[in-house]
């Protein structure tokens, strides 16, 4: 209790926009390393960059989905960062898609063929498309215009988008690989917490 209080107090001092700054800086840093073929980008920078952006997007989706359960069960309040986490996740999905389309596949026609013909690309694309309205409405004006209830309903699209993102990863790897399975299991578990009744931690405990 004392620990989460201290943490919450400290977190209040951190501005949410820092997440955009760090996210953008990281994306540029990875691109710069890919361009100069440094480290993991030494031999084949295109696929490595594509995967790096995709993986950050998945990690951010997991973190975004953890905000509510962390608040309910641990009392850790990350709510004010959630929008920035979600929007940054969207930008990494967008960057992932752009690397795929422009640097990897290199033609609109082939991009379309890939989306239609390859189920793992189809589900990845579906996830991306679901995230677009969420990114567009991630501002206070949209919350007011849509009304809180409608806005919340719309933003439940996060759940299928995250599951499809993890499925996309699992589907594209070869053989039995543990990492994508972990992402999928964690994301499904986090989504499940929304639908399974679990005793909540009291928010207004007297101190």
């Amino acid at each position: 209790m004392a620990v989460t209080d201290t943490l919450n107090k400290g977190l209040r001092k951190i501005p949410a926009w820092l997440i955009y700054v760090v996210g953008a800086a990281y994306a540029v840093w990875e691109f710069w390393r890919a361009l100069n073929q440094i480290g993991p980008y030494l031999v084949e920078p295109i696929n490595v960059l594509e995967r790096a952006y995709g993986e950050v997007a998945l990690i951010l989706m997991v973190v975004g989905l953890m905000v509510t359960p962390l608040r309910q069960w641990v009392g850790l309040n990350l709510l004010k960062f959630r929008r920035a986490i979600g929007v940054t996740a969207f930008f990494f999905v967008l960057a992932h898609f752009l690397v795929f389309a422009i640097l990897d596949v290199q033609s609109l026609e082939r991009v379309w063929t890939e989306i239609v013909k390859r189920p793992y690309v189809t589900v990845g694309m579906l996830s991306f498309v679901m995230l677009i309205p969420l990114a567009v409405t991630s501002n206070n004006l949209s919350v007011r215009k849509l009304g809180a209830a409608t806005w919340r309903k719309l933003h439940k699209l996060t759940y299928p988008a995250a599951v499809l993102g993890a499925l996309h990863y699992l589907w594209l790897v070869k053989g039995f690989q543990i990492e994508p399975i972990i992402y999928l299991v964690v994301i499904i578990a986090l989504v499940a917490t929304r639908y399974v009744a679990i005793p909540r931690k009291r928010q207004t405990a007297p101190s």
Partner: peptide, 22 residues
């Protein structure tokens, strides 16, 4: 003949950097 997950019509030669053409 495509692999179900990868088109086999084109390929990328390793060594062309970030803007290597297919």
């Amino acid at each position: 003949v495509d692999h179900p997950r990868w088109s086999q019509a084109t390929e990328r030669r390793i060594g062309g950097g970030l803007f290597a053409a297919r």
